[in-house]
Write a protein that binds this DNA or RNA. Structure first.
Length: 467
RNA sequence: GUCCCCAUCGUCUAGAGGCCUAGGACACCACCCUUUCAAGGUGGAGACACGGGUUCGAAACCCGUUGGGGAUACCA
């Protein structure tokens, strides 16, 4: 049997970290088994679902390259099918209509809470009543008949065997009084119709799994395998939620995080493969398994994400990175000449090893983006007020003009030789050079910068700074 | 309240009864490299929640305690 997984977000908010990880695990599991990964939008709560949230989720999935198979489906479009199943269940005697008023329900809940356990939230008062007793003027809901006694065990692929007494399971509502399905019914019907073999989802659904299992059985369907993965907590240890300042994945995108880094980080949160830390998508697909998913909740750690991001930045393709920098430049209203763009790509390795996110990369790139004369920071200007420093630059410029080739090694050699003849420390030469060439006191290796800038731009900047 | 789940450095984790004097990663500290800043290298500090069992031997297995989390809707 081929594996089919699905990610089933409800479009009531953005795609947050926990959801993204659930999607990733479902994706990886399906791909590992050569199966299918489906996306189903759970929009049965029409009041809370928004188009905006849905777009945010789709955008997040695309950004992380969690490509789903086929077109995404919308649960609300299967409402007719859900109602049919509910009615069939009633016809088969596995479900029944309940005419309770909200007041009656509230009363039952109150009793159950005060009883100290052993009492169900819904007492099943319409379970065996005849339809002829139905009061007029009340639209009934449909409830599923749950087993009255015994216990139910779920062989969860992550949590292991979990057993729950059946008397804690009440006859829950599957069809609302307005004829729309509840989540519980919709998931079961859709999972069955879509051929889902493995339901990998958050731990918060573990309790629901017991109810769903009986619903599957009442319908006479095979029950999918369940895998409940622990939730991701905020740094305070509580469930991630909007009020906790949990962010949507697009927020990380805006922070200049690379999607590969994000996925790698999410993968390591709750799943491990020995001591491996940096894991490519291909490697993840090959290695991913549910056995290695941890059972305890993990906390989100921005520092580690940033560290991973820095690593991906270092090995990322220069053109890809340049495109991100150019986008930032464009947003900042900086016009980049074709020469500057060439410099940017050439200088990328030296830049990338110094950045933790793409915005830092953009800031670091500034020295290549602009053309002479360049602006200077106060610190840089200060180091050039010294007459001796300016003299150094002038003398060095003369030597550089005579350079036969413009490679990093040659330039380095010229500067060192000059420093030696003048009996200066290399730093005394390099720092003014850095200020003049980059307009800053911090930059990649100054000889690398010179090589990337090229002869003309270098000499132009030197001349400007020396005067 | 009741039900369910969880418990190794600050954080993410390795650990399938002897390979554990508990390993790796992030963060932190020191040193090295060095033209600045990063990166990189080397080293350091830092954990088995507690109490009982089981066993020749428990971080690992069992029970309890404590702590944390989740669920308790005509939300998903």
């Amino acid at each position: 049997m081929s594996v089919v997984t699905r990610f089933a977000p409800s479009p009531t908010g953005f795609l947050h970290i926990g959801g993204a990880r659930t999607a990733l695990f479902n994706y990886l599991f399906a791909k590992h088994h050569g199966g299918q990964f489906l996306l189903r939008v759970e929009d049965t709560d029409r009041k809370r679902s928004t188009e905006e949230a849905m777009q945010a989720i789709l955008h997040g999935m695309n950004w992380l390259e969690l490509n789903w198979d086929g077109a995404e489906t919308y649960q609300s479009q299967n409402a007719d099918r859900h109602r049919e199943v509910a009615e069939q269940l009633v016809a088969d005697g596995n479900a029944y209509k309940c005419y309770c008023t909200p007041e009656e329900l509230a009363e039952m809940r109150e009793i159950a809470k005060n009883s100290g356990g052993g009492t169900r939230m819904y007492d099943g008062r319409w379970r065996d009543r005849d339809a002829s007793e139905a009061p007029a003027g009340i639209d009934p809901v449909i409830r599923i008949k749950m087993p009255l006694e015994g216990e139910t065990t779920i062989a969860d692929l992550v949590q292991g065997d979990v057993t729950k007494a059946n008397d804690t399971l009440d006859d829950f509502i599957i069809l609302r009084s307005d004829g729309t399905p509840t989540y519980m019914l919709a998931v079961v019907v859709d999972d069955h119709d879509m051929g889902v073999t493995h339901a990998i989802r958050g731990d918060d659904h573990l309790n629901n799994a017991f109810r769903q299992l009986h619903l599957f059985k009442a319908c006479g369907w095979d029950v999918p395998e369940f895998a409940h993965i622990p939730l991701i907590h905020g740094s305070d240890g509580a469930k991630l939620s909007k009020r906790h300042g949990a962010l949507g994945v697009e927020a990380y995108e805006e922070m200049g995080i690379l999607p590969e880094a994000m996925c790698n980080y999410l993968l390591r949160l709750g799943w491990s493969h020995g001591d491996d830390e940096t894991i490519s998508r291909e490697q993840a697909i090959e290695w991913f398994n549910l056995d290695a998913v941890g059972r305890s909740p993990a906390r989100f750690d921005m520092d580690k994400l940033l560290n991973l991001n820095a690593q991906y930045l270092k090995t990322a393709d220069a053109d890809t990175l340049a495109a991100r920098v150019l986008a930032d430049a464009n947003a900042a209203g900086i016009t980049v000449s074709p020469e500057a763009e060439t410099r940017l790509v050439a200088g990328m390795p030296g830049l990338a090893s110094r950045a933790k996110n793409t915005h830092e990369l953009f800031e670091l790139s500034h020295l290549y983006l602009v053309d002479a004369p360049i602006e200077m920071t106060e610190k840089a200007r200060d180091s050039l007020t010294d007459a001796e420093a300016r003299q150094t630059l002038k003398e060095l410029a003369e030597l550089l003009k005579k350079a036969t080739s413009w490679g990093e090694a040659e330039l380095d050699g010229i500067a060192r030789e000059y420093a030696e003849t003048r009996e200066l420390k290399l730093g005394k030469v390099a720092q003014p050079l850095r200020a003049a060439l980059t307009g800053s006191s911090v930059s990649p290796s100054i000889f690398e910068v010179m090589a990337v800038l090229g002869r003309d731009e270098t000499l132009a900047r030197l001349e400007f700074a020396a005067n």
